[in-house]
Write a protein that binds this DNA or RNA. Structure first.
Length: 831
RNA sequence: GGGCGAGUGGCGGAACGGCAGACGCGCCGGCUUUAGGAGCCGGUGUCGCAAGACGUGCGAGUUCGAAUCUCGCCUCGCCCACCA
């Protein structure tokens, strides 16, 4: 960026434009007056606007400004439109970075967090957002996490929190387990540190998110962006099909149950494949196959630990010696194990139909297993050397007994029904979604409020003993087990049931648990008796507009939906969805097109910009650079432009009435028209989060006002109305300058409590219109006519145009198309 | 491999199927200034002196009319990834 001095400019009208002279002053006044505090008893319609509370990482960067300014504009506009707006802010202050930073610096996570929160509070205030700080929540505050723990207990009592041994993802660097949602990408890396995860069998706490899989697929009640809905839908991954039993002859095993989405292909099932981890493998393995099978299972387990990389890896597996019976063909089919069958999905076993599944095909080809085509296109031929996977409506079954000749679509229910009648199966639905693993083997989180009694098992901590306080004197350097284990006074407790010696759970909760209910706490943040006041929640919830990053699509944004639905079913809430509308801002990247990070050194510090230009300019610039949901690499070159724009606003709002040329009715009407066109356009833009075009319209109005001033209209009512309107429409974007100029114009404090301007369609309409005249769709001329000119007159004028005549060359047009008020298109006989 | 999204001036970006390039940056010229900066005024898609022609990643199509809709391809971004 070229360095410019922050010297305030002279506008030529005598008044200095110097944001530093008023911005801070107005912010202090607003805060002192409690202007932005939402009133619980305000009778006007409520509006709950919320932006994702940040992690207190240290310094606010330009991305925080970008994310917060958008919803702030909308919140401010809603307030001016007469709604009782709540726009709270807080801090998501538990979590790993605090712990890691504390380890690096030898400080306590609590100190580090406190300092950062304090600094960010100050920085946040400099943005001039209408945050209601009286409602601030800090999730690492015992007054908050007490209720996080209380909620855990409710989930536990309702059977929605359970402890189970399972193969889980473990980050070897952070020394902690992760939820499936926190493992990313092809390489299965930790979402925090990018280290490839490994599988471990561990006993952990889970929330039963899968109970709500079906309900979470229903987005009909909420206005959320399509990409988010799609990602959640895919993540939940609902598959319809059937579970089918394949009888086997082996000690202690009657049958193997498989899940398939293609029961219509059962006549082509020529072998079975089980996950190596399948519990029936050992019992069904014949003695002569035992050595091979055990070797494969051990290899698979080892492979699992260094990460089961998938994709185009070559299939492998071994025959276990036993056979199952295909109930439809009555054939004996061999049972194999292979690691391409996953233990956690479906039943962990499949019927392999190599003719109609690519993976089964590859496996059959490698091990020379029979491939039998049983579903073909009508009159179709058997493909050569490849499976026929495509599933279309007009495929027909062949070699399928009584079902031959039936379409695949009909055969699915028909075969499922017959299997059901035979007691060998039933329709089934499977999901890819797994339960949410919430245990974390780290220190800086809310302790899981559970006590283990040798006699009574896992017991919740009685609610009147909450919070389970996080002890401060803990060595929290990660060792792979929770640091709290090394704190004897914390661990040794008595059983809440029998009072006998018991042991406290030492894992803490995933921070996503904290953030799954903070929006409820904002409704009654100081309630010491309950997590929330039901009346306050009834008043404010659900959130009307939620904003934040799309990276939380299957994390936070899925967990909150689960939380609300579960709490509803427990009787604590009365609504189904937390956030009625959702909008995602884009990411502001570094100038190098990479994500901003301290290690890359590409972080943009907003403080430098605000001290040079003021907050209003920075806010306006961020909203102007492009569509808000798009973001983009940081490039400050245009900031001078919006600063100049505010300078022009400053100048026109204080223009001295120079009455020497007062009577110019046409120009006056044009100014009124510009004013009302802007009112009409701008409100829609703001509501749709199209801030960039909203700013452009404000600039256009300002340019029109500048012109009006220059022709001597500064003393007219139309001029005053135009300026007042401009300030009102600008107030959500640039709250300080709007307030300052409003005051200088002698208007009542505060501009932010004024009514939003109302658009007058009459005034916005011009009496003449300019019509583009096309010939064969190409622009050839323009026609200025009065608005009420009849169509046949317009056609006559258009055809009379010499430009049109040149293309007609004396011929009559084949057609003349008129779009009333829009354009005329003359179609020549050539076309 | 699958899904989703995006390709428009030198740049950021506008454009209910109807005047492509709003608004802004940058650049050019002018005013002002001792000079520089700032400010203000005007110009600025490409080719052309002009008339005009050509222009929204590439190629087809639908339409009176396509940046916009359809199909195929190319490039980039994001998400998922052996899910039976």
């Amino acid at each position: 960026m070229t360095t410019r001095t922050g010297t305030p400019e002279r506008t030529g009208r005598g008044e200095r434009f110097d944001p530093s002279s008023y911005e801070q002053r107005w912010r202090e006044r607003w805060e002192a007056d409690g202007l932005d505090e939402a009133n619980d008893n305000d009778p006007r319609p409520k509006r709950y606007v919320l932006t994702m509370y940040p992690y207190p990482s240290g310094d606010l960067h330009i991305g925080h400004w970008y994310a917060a300014t958008g919803p702030d504009i909308v919140a401010r506009m809603r307030r001016m439109q007469g709604q009782n707006v709540m726009f709270p802010m807080g801090f998501d202050s538990f979590g790993l970075p605090a712990e890691n930073a504390a380890i690096d610096r030898g400080a306590h996570p609590w100190e580090w967090t406190e300092q950062n929160v304090e600094r960010m509070r100050t920085q946040f205030r400099s943005m001039g957002c209408m945050f209601d700080w009286s409602r601030e929540v800090v999730s690492s505050d015992p007054a908050y996490y007490r209720w996080t723990q209380w909620l855990f207990v409710q989930f536990f009592k309702a059977g929605l929190a359970y402890r189970a041994m399972a193969p889980v993802d473990w980050c070897p660097k952070d020394q902690v387990v992760l939820a499936r949602e926190q493992v990313e990408g092809v390489n299965r890396v930790c979402w925090r540190c990018g280290t490839p995860v490994v599988k471990r069998d561990l006993e952990q706490w889970f929330f039963r998110t899968t109970n709500y899989a079906d309900e979470m697929l229903d987005f009909s009640k909420i206005d959320w962006p399509e990409p988010i809905r799609l990602m959640q839908t895919n993540w939940i991954g609902r598959s319809e099909g059937a579970e089918i039993d394949f009888p086997v002859e082996a000690d202690g095993v009657d049958a193997i149950r498989v899940f398939t989405t293609r029961p219509d292909t059962i006549f082509g099932a020529t072998f079975m494949v089980l996950a190596p981890e399948h519990p029936a493998v050992a019992a069904m393995t014949t003695p002569e196959r035992k050595a091979d099978v055990e070797a494969y299972v051990a290899a698979a387990r080892r492979e699992t630990e260094i990460n089961r990389l998938s994709a185009e890896r070559e299939k492998s597996g071994v025959f276990i010696g036993s056979y199952a019976v295909n109930a439809m063909t009555q054939e004996r089919i061999p049972i194999w194990i292979a690691d391409y069958v996953l233990p956690g999905y479906g039943t962990g076993a499949i019927m392999a139909v190599p003719a109609h599944d690519e993976r089964d095909y590859a496996f059959a080809a490698k091990y020379e297993l029979p491939i039998r085509y049983v579903v073909l296109p009508p009159g179709g031929t058997v493909p050569e050397g490849e499976p026929l996977v495509a599933h279309t409506a007009d495929e027909v079954l062949v070699d399928s007994g009584e079902f031959s000749g039936m379409s695949a679509t009909e055969a699915i229910p028909a075969i499922t029904r017959q299997l059901t009648d035979l007691g060998l199966g039933e329709p089934a639905v499977t999901y890819r979604l797994r339960d949410w693993l919430i245990s974390r083997q780290r220190y800086w989180g809310a302790p899981i409020p559970i006590v283990y009694c040798p006699e009574h098992g896992a017991q919740p901590v009685p609610e009147d003993q909450l919070p389970v306080l996080l002890p401060e004197d803990v060595d929290f350097v990660p060792t792979g087990v929770s640091p709290l284990q090394s704190h004897p006074e914390f661990v040794h407790v008595s059983c809440p049931q029998c009072g006998g010696d018991a042991r406290r759970e030492t894992d803490t909760m995933d921070t996503f648990v904290d953030s799954s209910w903070y929006f409820l706490r904002y409704c009654s943040p100081h309630d010491a008796e309950r997590p929330w006041d039901p009346e306050a929640v009834a008043r404010w919830m659900p959130v009307d507009m939620y904003t934040g990053g799309a990276e939380h699509a299957v994390l936070h944004l899925m967990y909150v939906r689960f939380f609300v639905k579960a709490l509803r079913d427990m009787g604590h809430l009365t609504f189904d969805e937390p956030f009625m509308a959702l909008r995602n801002q884009g990411d502001i990247l570094g100038a190098d097109h990479h994500r901003m990070s301290k290690t890359r050194g590409n972080v943009v510090n907003p403080d430098d910009l605000t001290s040079r230009y003021g907050s209003d300019t920075v806010r306006l610039f961020l909203m102007f650079i492009g569509p808000w949901n798009q973001g983009g690499p940081w490039n400050p070159t245009g900031i001078e432009g919006v600063h100049r724009f505010l300078g022009r606003v400053w100048s026109v709002a204080q223009a001295a009435p120079a009455g020497e040329r007062g009577d110019q009715p046409e120009l006056t009407r044009a100014l009124r028209r510009a004013t009302h066109l802007t009112i009409a356009g701008v409100g829609d833009d703001y509501a749709a989060f199209h801030f960039n075009t909203g700013v452009a319209k404000l600039m256009e109005l300002t340019n029109a006002i500048v012109k009006a001033r220059d022709v001597g209209l500064a003393g007219t009512d139309a001029y005053a109305d135009a300026v007042d309107t401009l300030l009102l429409l600008l107030a959500p974007f640039a709250p300080h300058i709007a307030e300052e100029l409003w005051a200088r114009r002698g208007k009542p404090y505060s501009i932010h409590q004024q009514a939003w301007p109302i658009h007058d369609a009459e005034l916005a309409t011009a009496d003449t219109i300019e019509l583009p005249i096309q010939v064969d769709g190409k622009l050839r001329d323009r026609l200025v006519v009065t608005r009420d000119t009849p169509a046949d007159e317009i056609e006559r004028l258009a055809l009379a145009s010499e430009h049109v005549q040149r293309y007609l060359a004396g011929r009559s047009p084949r057609r003349v198309i008129q779009v009333p008020g829009k354009l005329v298109n003359v179609v020549t006989p050539d076309l």
